[in-house]
Design a protein around this nucleic acid. Structure first.
Lengths: 194, 194
DNA sequence: CGAAAATTTGACATGACTCAACTGGAGTGG
DNA sequence: CCACTCCAGTTGAGTCATGTCAAATTTTCG
């Protein structure tokens, strides 16, 4: 995949949400850096400020938090056509408490805060884009939160498989478990009884 | 509290996030309807499309979902200076699966979708406002999600009290429990042992 | 004051975790 | 190509966290 194809991919992503002119497209792409990431490579490590928002062109990423007992808790994952970042650290430029790691060989586009802020000033239509992105993300987060507080482990697992059928093949069970808020041992038991 | 004071209150809320001219302020306020809500009065009922976003000027609101066993699960609450709505239903104009109810005698400002959409066209600066609002909401939701998947009931309760000290006086325990994803009986036990 | 709702309490049941042992690939090096 | 290791996943036993139910108590509110 060359740069031209990569740009076309993210532009298609934008055009699904907002109309933008050729000039805006070109300017936007000029702010992006392509980055190839190896499996197990970190894009963000706990303690560092999250300097970029990442758009996944190819591959699979995961963000997670490590508690004081050393257990991982998967916050989010991201595959092709998704964004991933630590919003709080990115916006407020504070040290992050999470990690972002590539699960597979991946290609991502990254954009830094200064570029986005400038972009908002030059082309306000991008405010609209990120507003829409955030809204959709909100909707998804709300649904996940609802699952978390109202369903048991088995129900959450079934709901997740239904919502993201691809996930079973791309994310190891232990990470699915940590996304659902249960232990891998317990997830294994859920799967046996169903 | 008269209309003038109410307008001043929400304008102060806006100005904390974006700079807006007098003209923009006036236009924005013209799109808002003041609504007085009695305790237990519904602003949104399951099955209806959520036609408004609500800004709380005074009082206390709560959104909740009812599962098939009849249990309530509190999704969010909102006090003075907060917004509340069902984002998904509002944006996509689909029937909501949640309810929004006033817990206290409240005063809210409501704005409908057509008005917001027009506002975005007339004054793009409001795109920025809602982008910022959504971002901050995202950050809060993320933290809550992290609590939900990584902490036990007692820890979540302590974290909540610390984050929202006012909550203990304004929200009955059973609703705090349903916000935390535990039963009121269990919350009572947590409180006894601490 | 009296009724209804919220909270507490205790006994018991179930969900979910821990730990440790075992199984079965997926690399890796000889 | 085999032997080895390493890690993910499974299984079972025991334990802790949390839920359910029902009764007692307190609070709220008309």
């Amino acid at each position: 995949m060359n740069r031209k194809e990569i740009d076309a991919f993210i532009i298609a992503h934008l055009l699904k949400r907002i109309p933008i002119s050729a000039v805006e497209q070109e300017h936007f792409c000029s702010l992006l850096t392509v980055r190839k990431v190896l499996p197990r490579q970190y894009l963000l490590q706990e303690g560092d400020v999250c300097k970029y928002e990442f758009f996944v062109v190819k591959g699979f990423l995961r963000s997670f938090f490590i508690d004081d007992k050393g257990n991982q808790h998967t916050l989010n994952f991201a595959m092709e056509d998704w964004w991933i970042s630590d919003t709080k650290s990115f916006l407020r430029e504070t040290p992050s408490s999470i990690n972002i790691i590539a699960q597979e060989l991946s290609i991502v586009l990254q954009i830094d805060k200064k570029s986005i802020d400038q972009l908002y000033r030059d082309f306000p239509v991008f405010e609209r884009f990120w507003r829409i992105l955030n809204q959709n993300f909100n909707i998804a987060q709300n649904e996940r939160l609802l699952s978390a507080i109202s369903m048991d482990g088995a129900q959450r697992y079934r709901a997740m498989c239904k919502k993201y059928p691809a996930i079973e093949n791309r994310m190891p069970q232990k990470h699915i478990a940590s996304y659902l808020g249960i232990t891998p041992v317990f997830l294994s038991m859920i799967r046996r009884n169903s």
